[in-house]
Computed example of a mutant assay.
Amino acid sequence: MVVEVRQSPPQMSVDEFETLAEFTAREIETVGLEFVSGRLGVRKARNDSHGAVAAWLACRCLQARPGLGLHPNLGLRVEEHGEGRALPDGVLAPTGSFAGQGAWADPGAALMTVEITSHDPDTHHRDRAEKPRAYAGAGIPLYLLVDRDTLWTAVHSDPDPALGYRQVHMVRFGGVLTLPEPLGITLDTEELKQYAD
């Protein structure tokens, strides 16, 4: 499945964005800024169910692959040439992969990025269209979307910098989802039903 995303001129340069994001992180702790597809995005503080989904996923992944960690809200340089800056809800990678990399890490060690929808008006554009293309452009093997709006999980795989992810496998909450290689982890999503609020 390919989602068409129209490119508009960037709102600012990456350097201008990083200056703004650094100020925001220091002065306003309840929001984080992203810069994907030349567009400024605001990530606000999440509710408890959002965090419960992240904790559930971290636990399942660590049980299956003990050497990995789910790094929450880690800033990544994304898109084909690293022109974007994203704050995924989680980045699954070997433990310690991002130590010492500063506010915006290189995504080379990332095995999977994770987004958990937050019932906000920008979810469709951000989590279902822009982010998959940006993560594929950065060469991240997998993108997992836990969509609390539609009650589906979707794992995107086979990244192509020009097209985005070429494969998408979707499972309704309650079904069994297999995260393909390089992970090979099977998730029973029954527990996600209680975190849809």
Results as ranks from 00 to 15, higher is better:
27 E>T: 15
27 E>K: 12
29 E>W: 13
31 V>A: 08
32 G>T: 05
32 G>V: 13
32 G>R: 02
33 L>K: 05
33 L>V: 15
33 L>I: 10
34 E>R: 13
34 E>L: 07
34 E>M: 07
35 F>T: 12
36 V>K: 15
38 G>R: 10
39 R>I: 09
39 R>H: 15
41 G>F: 00
43 R>P: 08
46 R>Y: 09
46 R>T: 05
46 R>P: 07
46 R>S: 15
47 N>A: 12
47 N>V: 11
49 S>R: 07
50 H>I: 10
50 H>K: 09
51 G>N: 10
51 G>L: 14
52 A>G: 11
54 A>P: 09
54 A>H: 10
56 W>E: 03
57 L>D: 02
57 L>C: 12
57 L>N: 04
57 L>T: 08
58 A>D: 07
58 A>R: 13
59 C>A: 15
61 C>F: 11
61 C>A: 14
62 L>P: 01
64 A>Q: 13
64 A>G: 15
64 A>N: 14
65 R>G: 12
69 G>N: 14
70 L>H: 08
70 L>M: 04
73 N>I: 09
73 N>R: 06
73 N>M: 12
75 G>N: 06
75 G>Y: 04
75 G>E: 07
76 L>P: 10
76 L>H: 06
76 L>I: 07
79 E>G: 03
80 E>C: 07
81 H>G: 09
82 G>D: 00
82 G>C: 07
83 E>Y: 10
83 E>T: 00
84 G>Y: 00
85 R>Y: 15
86 A>Y: 05
88 P>G: 06
88 P>L: 14
88 P>Y: 09
89 D>Q: 11
89 D>E: 05
90 G>K: 00
91 V>P: 05
91 V>K: 01
92 L>I: 01
93 A>T: 03
93 A>N: 00
94 P>M: 07
95 T>I: 07
95 T>S: 06
95 T>D: 10
98 F>N: 03
98 F>A: 10
99 A>K: 11
100 G>I: 03
100 G>S: 12
100 G>C: 05
101 Q>M: 06
101 Q>H: 08
103 A>D: 12
104 W>S: 04
105 A>N: 04
107 P>D: 10
107 P>I: 05
107 P>F: 12
109 A>Y: 08
112 M>C: 11
113 T>L: 07
113 T>D: 00
114 V>E: 00
115 E>L: 01
115 E>H: 00
116 I>G: 02
116 I>D: 00
118 S>H: 02
118 S>D: 09
118 S>G: 13
119 H>W: 13
120 D>V: 06
120 D>N: 02
124 H>D: 05
124 H>E: 07
124 H>F: 04
126 R>Q: 13
127 D>I: 00
127 D>E: 03
129 A>L: 06
129 A>I: 04
130 E>D: 05
132 P>L: 03
132 P>C: 03
132 P>A: 04
134 A>C: 02
136 A>V: 04
138 A>Y: 04
138 A>M: 07
139 G>C: 05
139 G>V: 00
139 G>R: 01
139 G>K: 03
143 Y>T: 06
144 L>V: 03
145 L>M: 01
146 V>P: 09
150 T>Y: 07
153 T>R: 02
155 V>D: 03
156 H>L: 05
158 D>T: 15
158 D>H: 08
160 D>K: 14
160 D>Y: 13
161 P>K: 08
161 P>I: 08
162 A>K: 15
162 A>M: 11
162 A>D: 12
162 A>L: 15
163 L>C: 10
163 L>N: 13
164 G>P: 07
166 R>F: 14
166 R>M: 12
166 R>E: 14
167 Q>E: 10
